[in-house]
Structures are given as structure tokens and as C-alpha cells.
Simulated scan of single mutants.
Amino acid sequence: MFDPLAAVRTPQDPACDVYLTGTVFLDLIFTGLDSAPVRGTESWARGMGSSPGGVANMATALARLGLRTTLSSAFGDDMYGTYCWDVLAHGEGVDLSLSRTVPGWHSPVTVSMAYEGERTMISHGHEAPPPVTPDPDDPPRARAAVASLVPGERQEWIGRAARRGSRVFADVGWDDSGRWDLAALPDLAHCEAFLPNAEEAMRYTRTPCPRAAARALAEHVPLAVVTLGPEGAYAADGGTGETAEVPGVEVAALDPTGAGDVFVAGFVMASLAAWPLADRLAFAGLTASLSVQHFGGSLSAPGWPEIAAWCHRVHACPPQDPAALCRYRFLRNLLADGTRPAPRRRAVPTIGFRGA
């Protein structure tokens, strides 16, 4: 596999590139709906896929970009849990040595319905029982950790990861309380980068536009990155004062599930590789755009062969926007070794087929 960090690795580096923890769901994704479901009627979807979801979206996206990824999570011992474990550990190469199987605990499930460029989700699950004996190596020493901040909650592992030398990258969930108070995100103090979407950023900063929100957030965290959906992303560096904005890559979107996770994964990888800020934004946006062309959150994430194929196609099929050709030239140089497309596991309509 192509190693994007080969140029910056040293013998003293930790074995783990990125650590993350959270809940793994089984995702059932319905696409091709003409509109939102209407009460009292039956809606038929033209497409369906099943794949690991939840934190598995991020773990898979990181692993497909060549990062040594460790996930700490609970898995049910039902068919759903077994399927998700197999896909992550054996199909995607995610290190699950800090994960555990919980007997008798059924796997959480999310049904995602994609229509009109958006998606609606329904989830069901119960919190997994805590481990009898916490693992002293959880979190492990790692280059980076990815966290999802929860308003009003402190997650002790984030501070431990930062103290062990991990660079913490974080997004945030919706604030159901409606307060949108940065003081309610105590773990933000441990973060190197904060990556909310535009709506979240503006609510937290009481600013009228995403760019102003990013600059305001940069007063609280070293690097603020505000995602703008299909329009791209904007970033502000609180230390240097540098700002960058990169437009989105226009594609025919099939399913936006997990695109935000793929964006964060791309940004983390590019940051660990020490790329310039604008290149990091461009790469993260490209990976997210490529992901929405396939079913599902985790198994829609692109790998290097698909990124290389996109670069070749863009540069080999003139006329193209000269600015776009210039913007992604750094990738063409990086992938000059001729990385070739390879089959990727994708979301499937069902799971559990048995051989004859």
C-alpha cells in the first residue's frame, strides 16, 4: 500500500498513526428516493447498501489512505457485530486489538435514507457495558487522535491522548441544548484542530458567515477548519494568522453519508504529512467528493488508487479549468509512481450469504 507518511517517518515514531474510539453501527443505506418518506405510505428505494457505520466511517477512511489506524470499540456477538469486525479487521486492515466483543449485546443499527442531496437517519441501540478491566494502553501512543466532541461532556481519553503526544483533531455533534457555548466543549483545549461544519461554526461564534466563524474559532484553537459542504472549506490558523479557502470538487452525488468523516480523515492524513494548509483543504475536499459517488459511509471512502485515477482522468481530458489543474498538481507529482486502480469493497444490499 502507498505510504503517504514515508517521507516523514522516523524510527522513534509510534507504531500507531491515528487512534480513535466510539460506537460502531451497522448502517443500512437507501438511495434513489425521489422525496422524503410520507406518513401512511410505502416508499421504494432504487438502491440499497449495508456497511459498518458510526466511528467505522472514520476508521475505514483513515486506513484506506494508508494510515496505521487503531480503533477502540465494542462489538456485539451477533451477525451484525461479526460482519462489522470482519470488514474492519480483515477487509480494511484496521487494528482492533483494543476493541472487544460483548456477549449478548446487540449491535446498534442506523437506517439512512438519501434524497435531494441530503440524508435522514434513524438509529437504534443501547450503550455497551463498560469493560471489566480498562486497558492501560488505551489510548496508545499515536501520532494523532480523532475525537467527536460532545457539548456538555468531558471525555477523559482526549486529555490522556494529548498528554501522550497525540495531535488531536476534533469535530462536534449537534448541540441539542441550543446553547452553543464553546465553554461547554472543555476538551477543545486539548485539540490542535477543530473541524465543525458551517452551521455549527456560526452558531458557536455568533457570526454571520463561515469565514468569520473560522477566524473567531482560531482564537480558541490553534487551527479552525470550517466545512462548506459542496462549496469546499475555509481554514484559519490561530498561530500564524494564515487563512486558506479551497472550492469543492463537483461530482454526481449518490449518497452523502459519511462525507464529513472522510473530509476529516483526508485532512488528518495531509496534516501528518506536513502539507501546506491549502493543499490539506484541497485533498480533504477531494476525498469527501469522491466518497459521495458510492453507497454507504465507511465503504464509500476512496483509497489512493481511486485518487490517482481521478488525477489521471482530470489531467488527461482537456479542456479543464486551469485553476483546478494547478490546484491538484501536487497530487499528480506525489502519485507519479503509477498507482493503479484496484477493486474496493463496497456496501452490499445484504449480509450473511452462506456458501453451498
Results as ranks from 00 to 15, higher is better:
residue 228 L to G: 01
residue 216 A to H: 06
residue 205 T to V: 10
residue 247 P to H: 05
residue 225 V to N: 09
residue 245 E to R: 12
residue 236 A to C: 14
residue 246 V to E: 15
residue 251 V to S: 04
residue 242 E to P: 12
residue 251 V to N: 06
residue 217 L to Y: 08
residue 219 E to Q: 14
residue 226 V to Y: 12
residue 236 A to F: 02
residue 253 A to R: 11
residue 237 D to A: 13
residue 218 A to P: 01
residue 263 F to M: 03
residue 253 A to Y: 09
residue 239 G to V: 14
residue 249 V to L: 14
residue 270 A to K: 06
residue 200 E to G: 06
residue 245 E to Y: 13
residue 204 Y to Q: 09
residue 240 T to I: 10
residue 266 G to S: 10
residue 223 L to D: 01
residue 274 A to K: 13
residue 247 P to K: 01
residue 256 P to M: 04
residue 263 F to G: 00
residue 215 R to A: 11
residue 233 A to G: 07
residue 240 T to G: 09
residue 218 A to I: 02
residue 265 A to D: 12
residue 252 A to C: 14
residue 272 L to P: 00
residue 209 C to Y: 15
residue 218 A to H: 00
residue 226 V to I: 11
residue 246 V to K: 09
residue 230 P to R: 13
residue 274 A to V: 06
residue 250 E to V: 14
residue 203 R to M: 14
residue 248 G to M: 05
residue 266 G to L: 10
residue 249 V to N: 05
residue 206 R to N: 13
residue 233 A to S: 15
residue 237 D to I: 11
residue 273 A to V: 00
residue 230 P to I: 05
residue 272 L to F: 03
residue 238 G to K: 01
residue 208 P to W: 05
residue 200 E to K: 09
residue 244 A to Y: 08
residue 224 A to Q: 04
residue 261 D to V: 03
residue 206 R to L: 10
residue 216 A to E: 14
residue 238 G to C: 04
residue 272 L to T: 00
residue 274 A to T: 10
residue 252 A to Y: 13
residue 274 A to D: 13
residue 270 A to W: 07
residue 215 R to L: 11
residue 248 G to E: 03
residue 240 T to V: 11
residue 254 L to R: 14
residue 222 P to V: 00
residue 223 L to V: 15
residue 252 A to Q: 15
residue 199 E to Y: 13
residue 198 A to G: 02
residue 211 R to D: 15
residue 200 E to P: 08
residue 265 A to F: 12
residue 219 E to M: 13
residue 241 G to Y: 08
residue 233 A to R: 06
residue 276 P to D: 10
residue 248 G to I: 03
residue 274 A to W: 05
residue 222 P to K: 02
residue 245 E to V: 08
residue 262 V to P: 05
residue 201 A to C: 04
residue 223 L to E: 06
residue 229 G to N: 04
residue 213 A to K: 00
residue 240 T to Y: 10
residue 241 G to F: 05
residue 254 L to C: 11
residue 231 E to P: 01
residue 230 P to V: 07
residue 210 P to A: 00
residue 270 A to L: 03
residue 234 Y to A: 12
residue 201 A to H: 02
residue 243 T to M: 12
residue 273 A to G: 00
residue 260 G to H: 09
residue 199 E to A: 12
residue 221 V to R: 07
residue 240 T to S: 15
residue 272 L to I: 02
residue 275 W to K: 07
residue 261 D to T: 02
residue 224 A to T: 01
residue 199 E to I: 11
residue 238 G to Y: 04
residue 231 E to I: 01
residue 248 G to W: 03
residue 228 L to R: 00
residue 209 C to K: 13
residue 242 E to D: 15
residue 240 T to R: 10
residue 271 S to R: 12
residue 212 A to E: 15
residue 211 R to K: 12
residue 209 C to N: 15
residue 232 G to R: 09
residue 226 V to D: 09
residue 241 G to C: 08
residue 247 P to L: 07
residue 248 G to P: 02
residue 208 P to C: 01
residue 267 F to A: 03
residue 271 S to L: 08
residue 215 R to M: 11
residue 271 S to T: 14
residue 244 A to R: 04
residue 256 P to V: 04
residue 264 V to M: 15
residue 225 V to P: 03
residue 275 W to H: 03
